[in-house]
Design a protein around this nucleic acid. Structure first.
Lengths: 155, 155
DNA sequence: GAGAGATTGTTTACCAGGGCAACAACTTTT
DNA sequence: AAAAGTTGTTGCCCTGGTAAACAATCTCTC
């Protein structure tokens, strides 16, 4: 135990004062998200090599037939140029392919491969287990409440 | 309206399918946090030049006398080396100073300057307004519930 | 005390993720 | 046919984080 640790041990939480931030939703949102990300990294990412962002894209691609890169960018709320690298990663992993579109030679339709589909099923299981594990401190009802409150924040 | 947009318009949300992700807490946590960050950037950051991370550090420094950089790193859950740049920024802005510690010549005590304190009061107001504005879709009771649920996630 | 071992702040290199601007190829509109 | 818009892509930049190395300093152990 160092001197600095002892000095802050007499407060709540990690021992440091947070001031008025305890009333701020954004603060707790950020901390929760960081914790969720680390939990995800220690389970799904280490096992399947998939980050939360990649997983989200895989789900959107799997559930939206005829999705183009621009539409994916809009759905993910990021720039078109950011999509290129991610799609390249998923293609390299063999999860998806770029299908040429006869009607529009500029764009591609993103489509899951067979191995991508089975990989997604496997990853889904891991993610669901991870998510339940991460929210183990909450009852099912509390978890449902939390999700519905969060949804209303970003819509 | 492009063809791709029309193609996905027949689903819920932004029109893209999310698969089983609607049941995943981490997914909604991430989306909410991204939305909160963007809201913060468009208000506080543009007005005061302070990011959510910098604001959090300022609060911890203001509320923890005798805080060293290592203790701050531990409190923020980041590497010591990441702290250096951030502290430099806050020093350059004149918000804080590094106080030499006679008892330990290796470390510094981070302390708010007078102008830093008044700046923090101003920023606090802006952050609180921003936070209320961001969570305007929720009632006060719902907001309180949400915060207490989030707290239980990362502890 | 002397020396081995931690700790602190710092620098350097590195990587992930995203924004912005430019661009060629292509489509749509005028 | 020509102008204007869209799509995917590349290059460069910024932010923010990790990891390793290092000098200075403190602490523990013998």
């Amino acid at each position: 135990m160092t001197a600095s640790q002892a000095k802050v041990m007499d407060c709540e939480d990690e021992g440091v004062g947070h001031g008025c931030m305890d009333d701020e939703l954004g603060f707790h949102l950020r901390r929760s998200q960081v914790a969720a990300f680390k939990h995800f990294a220690q389970t799904v990412t280490v096992a399947e090599g998939i980050t939360p962002g990649l997983y989200g894209m895989l789900q959107v691609i799997a559930n939206t037939p005829g999705l183009t890169q621009s539409a994916l960018a809009e759905a993910m709320d990021v720039d078109r140029s950011s999509i290129v690298k991610v799609v390249n990663q998923l293609v390299e992993k063999g999860h998806i392919v770029r299908d040429a579109v006869p009607a529009d030679k500029r764009s591609y339709h993103l489509r899951m491969t067979a191995s991508g589909k089975s990989a997604l099923r496997r990853i889904e299981d891991a993610v669901m287990r991870q998510d339940r594990d991460f929210s183990a401190a909450l009852s099912d009802a509390e978890r449902t409440t939390l999700i519905s409150l969060l949804k209303r924040l970003y819509r």
